[in-house]
Computed example of a mutant assay.
Amino acid sequence: MNRWITNVVQRGVSDLNLYTNVSIKSIRVYVHIFPEEMFFSVTLVKLKLRSERYVYWDKSFLPMLKSLDIDSDLILFFADFLEIIPSFLVLEELRIHNLEWDKADVTVSSASLRKLSLHCTSCGGLLNPRSVSFDTPNLLSFDYSDLVAEDYPLDIS
């Protein structure tokens, strides 16, 4: 399957919609590792990932990506996802279900985001995040569920 995905991305696909329940066993958890080429595409505009297992995401360069939609049992971001978001220069829609924050203080920041939907799961081992803030000045639609944070700082600048 990864060879097929790589081939499609190398041919310049702009819209990729993947659903998989294929996984490999790695350190007692099931993780699907998508090919690196999928995360380093200059033509990809829309990416939708569905998985019955865990989705592994490390680094990426997707300068044309406008829509990112991820839903799996759990998304494993081995890079800091909050640092990845600003690298999507034209990202307008972001939907992530079953996200787990890897920090106690979280700031989601993107000037281009217009639609944001985040549904968090265990959020750091079922601990409430200390602080969650959103720096998204062009946001038109917002859907968020999480454990209650201690603080929701407001940036009014």
Rank of each mutant, 00 (worst) to 15 (best):
residue 21 N to M: 05
residue 65 L to R: 04
residue 67 S to T: 15
residue 55 V to M: 01
residue 36 E to F: 08
residue 52 E to M: 04
residue 37 E to G: 00
residue 25 K to W: 14
residue 16 L to Y: 06
residue 49 L to D: 05
residue 90 V to H: 14
residue 27 I to Q: 14
residue 38 M to Y: 04
residue 64 M to T: 12
residue 73 D to V: 04
residue 90 V to C: 12
residue 18 L to I: 15
residue 32 H to Y: 12
residue 79 A to M: 08
residue 63 P to T: 02
residue 38 M to V: 05
residue 78 F to R: 07
residue 15 D to H: 09
residue 89 L to K: 14
residue 48 K to E: 11
residue 48 K to I: 08
residue 67 S to M: 12
residue 24 I to C: 15
residue 32 H to D: 10
residue 29 V to Q: 13
residue 74 L to K: 09
residue 72 S to I: 01
residue 41 S to R: 02
residue 58 D to S: 10
residue 83 E to Y: 08
residue 91 L to C: 11
residue 75 I to Q: 06
residue 49 L to M: 06
residue 71 D to S: 05
residue 90 V to F: 13
residue 51 S to Y: 01
residue 74 L to I: 09
residue 32 H to E: 13
residue 81 F to E: 04
residue 14 S to A: 09
residue 17 N to I: 11
residue 63 P to I: 03
residue 50 R to S: 06
residue 20 T to N: 06
residue 14 S to I: 07
residue 52 E to N: 12
residue 50 R to Y: 09
residue 46 K to F: 06
residue 38 M to Q: 02
residue 68 L to H: 04
residue 63 P to L: 02
residue 60 S to N: 09
residue 43 T to E: 05
residue 63 P to A: 01
residue 40 F to H: 15
residue 29 V to E: 14
residue 71 D to L: 00
residue 39 F to C: 02
residue 73 D to I: 01
residue 84 I to Q: 14
residue 40 F to W: 08
residue 77 F to C: 14
residue 28 R to D: 15
residue 85 I to Y: 07
residue 82 L to W: 03
residue 22 V to K: 04
residue 62 L to N: 10
residue 70 I to A: 01
residue 88 F to L: 13
residue 86 P to H: 00
residue 55 V to P: 00
residue 53 R to F: 14
residue 18 L to N: 11
residue 51 S to M: 03
residue 40 F to D: 02
residue 56 Y to T: 01
residue 76 L to I: 14
residue 37 E to Y: 02
residue 72 S to C: 15
residue 86 P to N: 00
residue 68 L to G: 07
residue 77 F to Q: 02
residue 17 N to E: 13
residue 17 N to C: 12
residue 23 S to R: 01
residue 44 L to I: 08
residue 26 S to I: 08
residue 58 D to L: 05
residue 30 Y to M: 06
residue 37 E to F: 01
residue 57 W to P: 03
residue 82 L to K: 02
residue 33 I to N: 10
residue 37 E to N: 07
residue 69 D to G: 01
residue 24 I to P: 05
residue 76 L to Y: 09
residue 76 L to G: 06
residue 18 L to P: 11
residue 67 S to F: 11
residue 52 E to K: 02
residue 52 E to D: 14
residue 36 E to V: 11
residue 51 S to C: 15
residue 47 L to K: 00
residue 14 S to N: 09
residue 43 T to R: 00
residue 62 L to C: 11
residue 79 A to I: 01
residue 17 N to Q: 11
residue 37 E to M: 02
residue 48 K to D: 04
residue 74 L to D: 13
residue 65 L to C: 07
residue 55 V to Y: 00
residue 81 F to L: 08
residue 63 P to Q: 02
residue 84 I to W: 07
residue 73 D to W: 00
residue 65 L to P: 11
residue 80 D to A: 04
residue 78 F to V: 10
residue 86 P to Q: 00
residue 41 S to F: 07
residue 39 F to G: 01
residue 67 S to P: 06
residue 89 L to E: 12
residue 81 F to V: 08
residue 81 F to S: 04
residue 27 I to F: 15
residue 47 L to I: 02
residue 74 L to A: 09
residue 60 S to I: 03
residue 79 A to L: 05
residue 70 I to M: 12
residue 57 W to S: 00
residue 52 E to L: 03
residue 33 I to Q: 11
residue 69 D to Q: 03
residue 85 I to E: 08
residue 28 R to S: 15
residue 22 V to A: 13
residue 81 F to G: 01
residue 18 L to K: 07
